[in-house]
Write a protein that binds this DNA or RNA. Sequence first.
DNA 1: CTGAAAGCGCTAACAA
DNA 2: TTGTTAGCGCTTTCAG
Lengths: 354, 354
Amino acid sequence: MTGRRGSGKPTIADVAALAGVSVAAVSKVVNGKGGISAPTRDRVLRAAARLRWTPSAAAVALRGARTRAVGLVVRRPPDLLSADPHFTRLITGVEAELSPAGHGLLLHLVGDDPAAEEAAYRRLADERRVDGFLLTESRVDDTRFALLRELGAHAVLVGTPWRDDPVPSARAGGDREAGVRAAVEHLLDLGHRRVAYVSGPEDRVHTHHRRRAFEEALAARGLAPARTLVSDFTAAGAVDAVRALLGADDRPTAVLLANDTMAVAALSAARRLGVDVPGELSVVGHDDLPLAELVYPTLTTVRQDLVNLGRAAARLLLVALGEADDAPVAVRPPELVVRESTAGVRRAAAAGSR
Amino acid sequence: MTGRRGSGKPTIADVAALAGVSVAAVSKVVNGKGGISAPTRDRVLRAAARLRWTPSAAAVALRGARTRAVGLVVRRPPDLLSADPHFTRLITGVEAELSPAGHGLLLHLVGDDPAAEEAAYRRLADERRVDGFLLTESRVDDTRFALLRELGAHAVLVGTPWRDDPVPSARAGGDREAGVRAAVEHLLDLGHRRVAYVSGPEDRVHTHHRRRAFEEALAARGLAPARTLVSDFTAAGAVDAVRALLGADDRPTAVLLANDTMAVAALSAARRLGVDVPGELSVVGHDDLPLAELVYPTLTTVRQDLVNLGRAAARLLLVALGEADDAPVAVRPPELVVRESTAGVRRAAAAGSR
DNA sequence: CTGAAAGCGCTAACAA
DNA sequence: TTGTTAGCGCTTTCAG
């Protein structure tokens, strides 16, 4: 008999009635506004709990123009996506920040289609479904910034912007290329002199940064890259790259690849060609996905603190929305994890190349 | 000067004004209701396009109690999650169905915490943020069904329910255990007689179905399992299982594992123990993730049509919500993909076991 | 065929 | 400290 029990979900009016106060009082209580006596507060809270009432997200959004949701649009070829747990880790971190803040994550996976990507952003923004966006995979001359500015949407970039792009970005702390540098030094210390690099696609910002770090680290020891190839993050691409590398006259004794998936593919490509890892070829990956410990030999790789990167980005977005304090989340700098896929140069391999 | 340009997003009133009609007319046009003349329709559409207007999701939701969003709550230990691209594929399929229908996907990743899981469902439902839920990983005596019934939320299960659970479910077509059966027959045809099975956690429904299929397929040829172990989907678990298997006196010559991640771990565990795959041990995985083609030897595995499973589930949910026609999405039955990790028994291995 | 008007559930002035 | 009330942007009767 209390209110309209049974007929659908309770509303703020039901709670007010049950507590014997006005709806305004209920609103103030749940929003932590002042000007409510303790006893009233109590009665409201009790009534709300009894009715299991929570403010309707739609009503709140309509009223205040805040949806308490953020959007994440991922543009990737489906196959690549499912091959790479990269995103799952990132999202884990994002969630860890968003959930306690009462914010939802609206996910959109669009294939490898720029038009679909733009449409997704537009729809989410025009329908006012989200308060802001998280952008992943910083791209060279990223067109998303202009789009989001046009749409008037808040945005935070995960990673390093290409130039001084006008959005806040979440990045690793410390020296962001420390991982790649450490990897190169590790290889050189093992005696390698012919080190190759297989990069990711040229339109990704980190491709350039990492490759440059690779080249500089070699240069610092007076060396040049044995070879630098551009791949596409796919396993097939990595296999081709490794074939090219190993088929050459002066083949490298070590190779760095831009992600773990490619590195694992390299491992098996080498094996298939009868090249022993790490006996004849050392292999280094990037990201330190669980996969890296799973394969044989286990993969030496550059660990990225993806979970905290996701957290940091989400936090920045909440701050931009005025929903969180400006307490940045620390993201550990990339760090080399040495496992079995790297070892010293064997005499034979080092000497006789062709 | 037209309407309130520049001052925030356009509303239906702006469109009505620009088109010289009432807001009701605009509403009817965008919702495809009848009773609008073609010329009026045209003017409205043109005005809406010019203003880039899309109905506010919040207002629509408030008005109609339909949010055009579905929830997906995933409860998994973070590590397991990022090791397994399973979900990414499923979500790809879900998106493919939801997106064209104009529905969003609200994703919540909760750790391995039942309380957090329940809280996530409650919040999404109580705040009326979603119209329904997609449930993944069918569990034995799944408590989510009761919860969602209490919450009055629509739900569709991805996979086979434990008993006749009262929610619609999306499943593979044809014989759902055809894959496991084909795997067993493949191994038997290769001459294997001692075949072991490493299952997933006991609380997953498919664990029981697949294990039973395994046992029945063996029984059909008058054989019994060499050994059946329960693991936990993790790589570490798989490594332990393989050690246990290979350390035994009468060790199996072939082993099936409940997912590809475990199978890949098994591959390297075997190698580490000096056991050749497939020379001394054949290994079969489950799911056919991209990973399966990436490793050496490439993995024989049971392919699941996860993308269409996701599509089918999303479609069922849309149908339940009255948002789509009842045209089921076909999900291919599981199918064995033979690659390099399985081969005939070598005399030596078959004979001398200890 | 078209328009006026009543809310959907909530928040924030403003009054009391 | 508390209550009253006017909308937020939209859909939907119900009249015209």
